Simulated scan of single mutants.
Amino acid sequence: MKFEPTQPGNPHRLTLDQHVFPKAGIQRFTNLDGSVEIFVKKLNRALQLRPNNSIFCAKRVWDQKTESGVGKRIEDRFQALARAIISGSVTTIGIFEKRIVEEFFSLWRTRHKFKTEGLADISLHGITGASLTKDQQEILESNHTLYAVDGAMKGRLMASLHIFGYQNQFLLDTQSIQWGIARSYSDEFIVPDSFDDMMIVPVSPRIAIVADLPDSVITRDQVAAINQAAMARASDYYFARRLSVCPVVREISPPFERRFDDRSY
């Protein structure tokens, strides 16, 4: 979908660069100079970039309600859980934590889908809608209000409905799934732009939440299996604190074969 710029100066402070994987999550993987090492597939090389770089973002693909309302609430709950896991105050994924992890995983995956596929505008047959100025449209969006112009609604305005639809189906499909906290002593995890069907959520360079894995300190080979899955499923890039300390293997071992059946996506 074509990027729609705001009015000059963006007077209503609409978010233009929208992080697919949250900025707060990327920041936990930064090195001492505040950047992460990212391998960009189309360039076939690694770069040092900061978490606010636009490569990590979609360009105004979803609306402000989805960004600062729906998405932020899911992100905030997950970031609080991530901090608790890192500090050691949460050591297992119980019923309450499971919901937080699954809502976040679905949000991350859905945002990536939005970024790569876009959201088509919707024609409202038989409804012409009011003629709105650019300023009026932006005021409505900043107030999380839907609107139509010339009988059509911009696809990004319907993003939150897609978020909830995909999320509800995902929660139904994963009712029997248990997540575990995987910790590594020295080897570090790679984060892809999307894990696609592999149900893994990186938390920090040495901690990940993995479906169907008991809470455990995992081996170098297991970290390598997760990293290989990350690299294989990344569409545009993957990153880490230091790629050189992220082991990789060519075959995925059985504990990491849990995948999400994405027929509803």
Results as ranks from 00 to 15, higher is better:
T6F: 04
Q7K: 12
P8D: 08
P8G: 07
N10I: 15
H12P: 08
R13T: 12
T15W: 00
D17N: 13
H19R: 04
K23Q: 11
I26G: 03
F29Q: 08
L32F: 08
D33A: 06
E37L: 04
E37K: 07
V40N: 08
L43C: 11
L47R: 15
L47P: 14
R50L: 01
R50Y: 01
P51I: 07
N52D: 04
N52I: 03
F56I: 14
F56L: 13
F56E: 13
R60Y: 10
E67D: 14
V70R: 01
R73D: 01
Q79D: 03
A80Q: 08
A82K: 00
I85Q: 06
I85H: 03
I86E: 14
S87T: 14
S87Q: 14
S89K: 13
V90L: 04
T91E: 10
I93M: 00
I95L: 11
K98E: 01
I100A: 01
I100S: 03
E103N: 04
S106L: 01
L107I: 05
L107S: 02
T110H: 03
R111K: 06
R111N: 00
K113H: 11
K113Y: 12
F114K: 07
F114T: 11
T116C: 08
E117D: 14
G118S: 02
G118Q: 05
A120Q: 10
L124M: 12
L124E: 03
H125N: 06
H125P: 03
I127M: 12
L132N: 08
L132R: 11
T133P: 02
T133A: 01
T133R: 02
K134M: 14
Q137R: 11
L140C: 08
L140S: 11
L140W: 06
S142Q: 02
H144F: 15
H144C: 14
L146E: 13
V149K: 04
A152S: 10
M153E: 08
A159S: 12
H162Q: 15
I163Y: 09
F164P: 04
G165T: 11
G165I: 10
Q169T: 10
Q169I: 11
D173Y: 02
R183K: 15
D187R: 09
F195C: 13
D196G: 05
V201M: 06
I207E: 10
A208I: 15
I209P: 05
I209D: 05
A211K: 09
L213E: 09
L213H: 11
P214K: 12
D215H: 06
I218R: 09
I218T: 13
T219S: 15
T219R: 00
D221Y: 00
Q222M: 10
Q222Y: 01
N227F: 02
M231N: 05
R233E: 00
Y238P: 02
F239C: 13
F239W: 10
R241I: 10
S244T: 15
V245T: 14
V245G: 01
I252W: 03
S253R: 06
F260H: 06
Y265I: 15
